[in-house]
């Protein structure tokens, strides 16, 4: 459990985190989304006990970040947005270093390190210098490092930034795997679509303010409005008159379930009332009106549009 209540952090006159409250429950993968400079890293650092908040409270598994830093550190894995590497160590030594820092018993280290290397698919790179790894591997090594002490909670700051699509997919699979293992994950990103699929819930932050927090389906519900459907009428055959799009539109407008219809040549743009979920009555009405339909395309609302809608107007 991560609970944040009215958290505020200033850097001089800059309000980096502004009265932020959110909760991440057991077994959740929380996607923390916001543009650069929104305050994601700052929030995570406060949770990792690396930064003192000005006001508000934050607890991790019931422990207060202000008082129980020591205990929190043992049960929390934090991966900063920029993986600092000791470039003079091998992968194995790097992990040993942190295993020792987390006070893992010497006897158990070997097995633990082999385990996390296996999980992050880095076993073959065990003896390579950390500095010789690719960016994707370095990020995975960062995840491997946070897993050493088997933490309950993982805070991963932009783990996919700078990765190519393939490495991104690998990272996503790794995170889903971790969620299955029962860990609480808080993962930040400035790209919504990167997190949308795997997150159980998301939070959208901008200029320090939390604009939305909840499940991703709820987020859709909030922004979707009515469904939109585009209907294209068949082109007229040789020598026949063009179909009357206007009269078809008039038929639809008479229906109480339709919010609006607009006509552009042979195309009808139909928007349904928000509570309306089924589309079949549109086809039936059009057929009854004697219209021949060439294409019937319900519009999916795009993730990024949802994101824009969610955040629009809240911050100027």
């Amino acid at each position: 459990m991560i609970e944040i209540r009215n958290l505020t952090k200033r850097f001089g006159s800059l309000l980096a985190v502004d009265d932020l409250s959110l909760t991440v429950g057991e077994g959740e993968l929380f996607g923390f989304i916001g543009p650069n400079g929104a305050g994601k890293s700052t929030t995570m650092k406060i949770l990792a006990c690396l930064l003192r908040a000005d006001s508000g409270t934050a607890t991790v598994c019931g422990l207060d970040v202000r008082k129980d830093g020591e205990a929190i550190r043992r049960m929390l894995g934090y991966m900063p947005d920029f993986l600092g590497v000791y470039d003079d160590l091998t992968v194995d030594e790097y992990l040993q270093f942190f295993a020792s820092a987390f006070r893992l018993e010497r006897r158990k280290r070997r097995a633990v390190i082999d385990g996390v290397l296996e999980l992050t698919d880095l076993t073959v790179k065990k003896r390579a210098m950390v500095s010789s790894l690719s960016r994707g591997m370095q990020q995975r090594l960062g995840v491997a490092r946070v897993l050493l002490h088997d933490p309950k909670v993982l805070l991963l700051d932009e783990p996919a930034s700078g990765l190519d699509p393939r490495a991104r997919i690998e990272m996503r699979e790794l995170l889903v795997e971790l969620r299955r293992m029962g860990k609480i994950l808080m993962v930040s990103s400035h790209i919504l679509s990167e997190l949308a699929e795997m997150s159980t819930s998301i939070g959208i932050i901008e200029r320090g303010k939390l604009l939305y927090a909840g499940s991703i389906l709820d987020a859709y519900e909030r922004v979707r409005g009515g469904d939109q459907i585009a209907v294209t009428l068949e082109a007229p055959a040789e020598g026949t008159e063009a179909q009357d799009a206007e009269s078809a539109a008039r038929t639809l407008r008479a229906d109480s379930r339709v919010a609006s219809v607009s006509v552009e040549g042979p195309r009808l743009e139909i928007e349904l009332k928000p509570e309306e979920r089924s589309h079949h009555f549109v086809i039936e009405a059009l057929v009854r009106a004697g219209v021949r339909i060439a294409a019937f395309e319900p519009r999916q609302i795009k993730l990024e549009d949802a994101f824009l809608k969610l955040t629009k107007g809240s911050v100027q």
């Binding site: 000791y86 470039d87 987390f102």
Partner: peptide
Amino acid sequence: SEREGRTWDVLMSTPL
């Protein structure tokens, strides 16, 4: 140098 190499934050998040 740890701060410059950004390894400091990582070290700080350990119980050392």
